[in-house]
Design a protein around this nucleic acid. Structure first.
Lengths: 204, 204
DNA sequence: GAAGCTCTGTACCATGAGATACAGAACACC
DNA sequence: GGTGTTCTGTATCTCATGGTACAGAGCTTC
């Protein structure tokens, strides 16, 4: 898997390559990631690419892993507070804000990658399965905690609720990306919020 | 946009090309659609491709339009009955069945295409905007009808409900496709169903 | 059955893009 | 400051792939 850089300069270069490639994918799809384009965008020569990555596929895979780590790291502080309705709402708000921010491009980086590369090789697909699992796990844990502490009705299926939430996020982001407006995402998350409130023991 | 075939043989050939290309996209992504691959899969020579399509891009665009029409045509009979809870539930069941059927590949053909080509040119993106609008319109109309006839509470936002539903479908299909199991899709639609029931005037 | 279409088969071209070779610069370490 | 390692620049090769040329088969129509 190429050389892992040891010097600061090396890490910076590898990072620039990864960022440039990720940006190209996000904006114009995987097909737009030609080595020439990456070089231009990253301000880097051909030899650097092959110094840090085995080949193009290795680069793409690395982008996937980097993106997954980055997105999940960004989510982490919010996902830790998901054990309460207020925490979940903060999480939703952040997602909507995030989807709105990136000038109308939006879309979930992981979801976007997933639908482009999910049908690729088994290894890449597995990476996305793991990514979504890591993403959903804190939510399930939080909901379960709420259920055990009596906030949530005992008869609701927490995995079902979590799956709905994840689907609403992904679907909302996809549709918002196509329509270039965050409305759909907001609506979808409002719906998920309603479903959550509906499962509370004490209706608000 | 190439020659539109006039003979039966011509239509069959053009159809085979379109089917083969659609299949390749669905299974291995747009990048896998090389002209050689299409020829092999469709049992067709290079000259046929350029007889019926201007170039590769035209072929891809044609696949998009054909897929949209096909999916929407398949949905149509169910979408006409969406003016009642029972009709909506039949629609959901069909979607789940459809997502389950295609041997674990699944995924929404339109959604999959959309996330691969949505960031492409403006024209293609618009095609998807239209597709989703055409898809969602009957649902909104049905919900509005239910609201006017008193089945649905007057204070609920029908577009919000419809957006949640569409997002649940798309997100559920995406996640089900990645995980190769229809559970997530089923869960997501159960959630959407719950949200719908919650909006009814007479709780079931 | 001949003309004039639509449709098909094969060979070929041009070039974009992935990959390689190799030398030289920058840096770390003693 | 010398030496080995990491990192970078440039030129080049190779080949897959989109695109073209052109002849020939197969209908349809008169």
């Amino acid at each position: 898997m190429g050389h892992t850089p040891t010097t600061a300069r090396g890490r910076a270069t590898r990072g620039r390559i990864l960022d440039a490639a990720a940006d190209l994918i996000q904006r114009h799809g995987v097909a737009a990631v030609t080595l020439d384009a990456v070089e231009r965008a990253a301000g880097v020569g051909r030899s650097q690419l092959y110094h840090y990555f085995d080949d193009r596929d290795d680069l793409i895979r690395s982008v996937v892993h980097a993106t997954v780590d980055k997105v999940l790291a960004a989510q982490e502080p919010l996902l830790l507070e998901v054990g309460s309705l207020a925490g979940i709402e903060r999480w939703f708000d952040a997602i909507v804000a995030n989807g709105t921010r990136q000038d109308a491009v939006g879309g979930c980086a992981i979801g976007s990658l997933a639908s482009q590369l999910g049908g690729q090789d088994e290894l890449t697909r597995q990476a996305f399965v793991d990514a979504f699992a890591r993403w959903e796990a804190p939510l399930i844990a939080g909901l379960r905690w709420m259920q055990e502490s009596g906030e949530l009705r005992p008869d609701v299926d927490v995995t079902e609720l979590a799956d709905l939430t994840m689907a609403a996020i992904q679907g909302g982001l996809l549709l918002a990306q196509i329509r270039r407006t965050p409305d759909q995402l907001r609506h979808a998350l409002n719906g998920a919020r309603a479903a959550l409130k509906d499962a509370l023991t004490s209706p608000p």
